[in-house]
Simulated scan of single mutants.
Amino acid sequence: MATGTVVRFDEVRGYGFIAPDAGGEDVFVHVNDLCDEKHLFRSGLRVAYTTETGDRGLKAGEVQLLEPARAVTARRQAPGAATARPAAEPDEDLVCEVLSAAEFRGELTEALLDAAPSLTAAQLLQVRKRVMELAQTHNWIDA
């Protein structure tokens, strides 16, 4: 079984994505492939899973939590609700915040799902892949 971290899981839409520990593209996960209750899955939780190749790329199966869900504190929000982020302290020397690839991928996934909730998983992965390539080309993210 492979292991990874839940990047995003939307229990209302019934799907999400896992960042594999081995690296590479995030793996799509559907609610029907969860071994635990869907309300327990949150961003940041570690999971074990099998992978299969579907028509639209990698898909996770037999997804099991590796840690208790209570270990991660996450706020429940209504779908589409904006997430408030603390304002950064002004720093004259700081040009911009450079995120890790995983952080950027997570933020990008959230933004795409909020902006276009009708995107299919395949469309989301295609758009996200291209934007990630662009971000790496321009050194907007740490490799």
Rank of each mutant, 00 (worst) to 15 (best):
G23T: 14
D36C: 12
R128F: 02
L112Q: 03
A74W: 12
V72T: 12
G80N: 10
A102S: 12
L40N: 13
E67I: 11
Q123E: 13
E37N: 01
H138G: 00
D93I: 12
A60N: 09
G16S: 08
M132K: 07
Q77L: 04
G24R: 11
F104I: 05
P117H: 04
R85Q: 06
A87C: 01
D26F: 15
F41A: 07
L112H: 03
H138K: 00
P68G: 15
V72R: 06
A60V: 10
F9E: 08
P86E: 09
A88Y: 14
A88C: 05
G106P: 05
D26R: 15
I141G: 01
V31E: 15
Y49K: 03
L119M: 06
T50I: 12
V31F: 11
V63R: 13
A121I: 14
G24Y: 02
Q64M: 15
R56G: 06
L94D: 09
D33F: 07
L124C: 03
K38E: 05
P86K: 06
T83C: 08
T83H: 11
T5E: 08
N139K: 01
A115W: 02
T137Q: 00
S43V: 08
A88S: 09
V12S: 15
L45R: 14
A60W: 07
P68W: 13
D33N: 14
R76I: 08
I18V: 03
Q64N: 14
M1D: 15
R70E: 10
Q123H: 02
R85Y: 10
F104L: 11
A116K: 04
G44T: 11
H30W: 01
